[in-house]
Computed example of a mutant assay.
Amino acid sequence: MATRAMLRGYLLEEALAWLLRHSGYRLLVNAEQDPEELVSDGGNLRVRGRGAVHQVDVLGEFAFTPAFSLPVRLFLEAKYYRTPCRLEVVRNAHGVIHDVNENFMNRPGSRPRRRYQYSYALFSANGFTSDAQEYALAHQISLIDLSGESFTWLLEAIKEAAQDLYTAQVQHHVTSFPVSWMRAELRQRLDTGPLDLLPVVNTGAPGFRAAAKSRLADFVASLTTHHESELLLGFPAAPFVLPLAASDAQQFMNYADTHPDHVVRLRRTGQNGDAEWTVSPREPGGGYLLTFKLPEQIEDWISDNAEKERQRTMQIKSEFLAGITVYRMVGAGVRSYQLRYEPSELRR
């Protein structure tokens, strides 16, 4: 039987796949998309490693290969615990990435095959413990904290849907929750396919299936009510990814398409783990606003000395946030945008 925390995590992963639908990644859902690297096991997708085959719930492939790099694939894992995500989860992520990135051996007589660089992004509804953050920064595992106000609507919708699914599971005596079936249902409704390659997964207990379908439809409706919302991935010169929440993505696109390389204003409000940042064009009339959170470890360093807080804020801006690259799918192509912070912009 699936716990409420497990159900919240599954729903969060699928919601994130939808929010990231234009971020430059295409979703991999079936081994037919890459028979040499991927394995389909019932409704589950697995990735071959050097020493094991690893299950993956959400796997994206970046549509654009950066210069002097391998094609990039991204593991996306989400945890919706009531407490901060602990070290063991991050350590497991590192073990998976280390194994799959070593799965490339030349055998005598074997033909050359394509190689990928796998990365890992771990999202948490309630942040991460300090040792988890230290480990992740050391091993370049991207930790993304969703506890800010920008994601309150999303987390509340997930919490409600997970409770209803858990209740339906109990009422209909379902001992093994059909996770693969639920993922396929959500991907069909949210169009995060590719739909022609989604596994066909059936589940028993027709009463449960009807109740779950109804609740999933309500959940999808709550997401699409925020259809203008989007999560853009920002890539700074730092060992982490910035989750740029756009309450109205079209406003960003209207400005960025005209100004693909532009100077931005960065503002920070709050302290420690409650601090949030905003990005907006420095020139007046830009109209868009993006919000993000930095790793809590960095925020703690900024805030632990009141006399140096302003100086440290400016230091983070100049050293880590001076250039943020955003990629976005437009039709079948990928566009890149450069958001530049200039040190002369001396505002907090």
Rank of each mutant, 00 (worst) to 15 (best):
M1G: 12
L7V: 07
R8K: 11
Y10L: 13
Y10I: 09
L12V: 01
E13D: 10
E14D: 12
E14Y: 04
L16K: 02
L16G: 01
A17N: 08
W18N: 00
W18C: 00
L20W: 03
R21P: 00
R21Q: 11
S23M: 02
Y25W: 09
N30W: 06
E32G: 01
D34G: 04
E36R: 11
L38Q: 04
S40T: 09
G49M: 05
A52G: 03
V53W: 12
D57M: 03
V58Q: 15
E61T: 05
F62K: 08
A63Q: 12
F64G: 00
F64N: 02
P66C: 05
A67K: 10
L70Y: 12
P71V: 02
R73T: 01
F75R: 02
L76K: 04
R82S: 14
R82Y: 07
C85Q: 07
L87A: 08
V90S: 03
R91S: 12
N92K: 14
G95V: 00
G95P: 00
G95S: 11
H98Q: 13
N103L: 02
N106T: 13
N106E: 14
R107W: 14
S110D: 14
R115T: 11
Q117F: 14
Y118M: 03
Y120M: 07
Y120T: 01
A125T: 02
A132Y: 07
E134Y: 09
I141E: 04
I141C: 01
L143T: 03
D145W: 01
G148L: 01
S150Y: 06
F151R: 02
F151S: 07
L155R: 14
L155C: 05
E160G: 02
D164T: 09
L165S: 06
Y166N: 08
A168R: 06
H172E: 13
H173W: 10
V174S: 08
F177C: 04
S180K: 07
R183C: 12
L190G: 08
D191E: 14
L198I: 06
L198Q: 08
V200Q: 15
A205F: 09
P206S: 05
R209A: 14
A210Y: 02
A211L: 04
A212T: 02
K213H: 10
K213T: 08
K213P: 00
T224Q: 13
H226F: 09
H226G: 01
H226Y: 10
L231G: 03
G234E: 11
A238I: 03
A238F: 04
F240N: 05
F240I: 04
V241N: 06
V241M: 13
P243G: 12
L244V: 05
S247E: 15
F252D: 02
N254F: 10
N254Y: 11
D257R: 14
R265S: 13
R268S: 11
R268E: 10
D274H: 15
V279L: 15
R282Y: 15
E283Q: 15
E283T: 13
P284F: 09
G285P: 01
Y288P: 00
L289E: 15
D300M: 09
D300E: 13
S303I: 01
S303P: 00
A306R: 13
E309Q: 15
R312F: 03
K317T: 03
A322N: 15
G323F: 12
Y327M: 11
Y327E: 08
R328Y: 07
V334S: 06
V334G: 06
V334R: 06
Q338A: 11
R340S: 07
R340Y: 01
S344L: 05
R347V: 07
R348H: 07
